[in-house]
């Protein structure tokens, strides 16, 4: 469980750092997303789908970890 928390924290930290770094380069959000033919809208959509599937995989892993833990205790 602790390792997953660590992964999640690292993930959030990475997203936060990326967002702050990006906030300094682009003037406004919509300018960035609507530059170069709105290709970043597509990138954002793919990232959202990937993160959604990843979140489900993490929750499945946690369930499995719970079972493994009880297996050890028995």
């Amino acid at each position: 469980m602790n390792t997953i928390k660590k992964y999640l924290l690292t993930g959030f930290a990475a997203i936060f750092l990326a967002l702050t770094a990006y906030g300094q380069t682009a003037s406004t959000k919509s300018d960035f997303f609507e530059s170069t033919g709105k290709i970043y809208v597509v990138v954002a959509v793919i990232v959202v789908i990937f993160l959604g599937i990843l979140a489900l995989l993490i929750s499945l892993e946690r369930r499995l970890a719970k079972i493994e833990k009880e297996e050890k205790e028995l």
Binding site: F33, E34, K38, V41, G52, I53, L56
Partner: peptide
């Protein structure tokens, strides 16, 4: 569960797309 996850992702990606179109 996975069906609803796809639906939620569909709504979020749709909202993102809608914002810029």
């Amino acid at each position: 569960g996975i069906g609803v996850l796809y639906g939620v992702l569909g709504i979020i990606t749709g909202a993102l797309w809608a914002k810029h179109t």
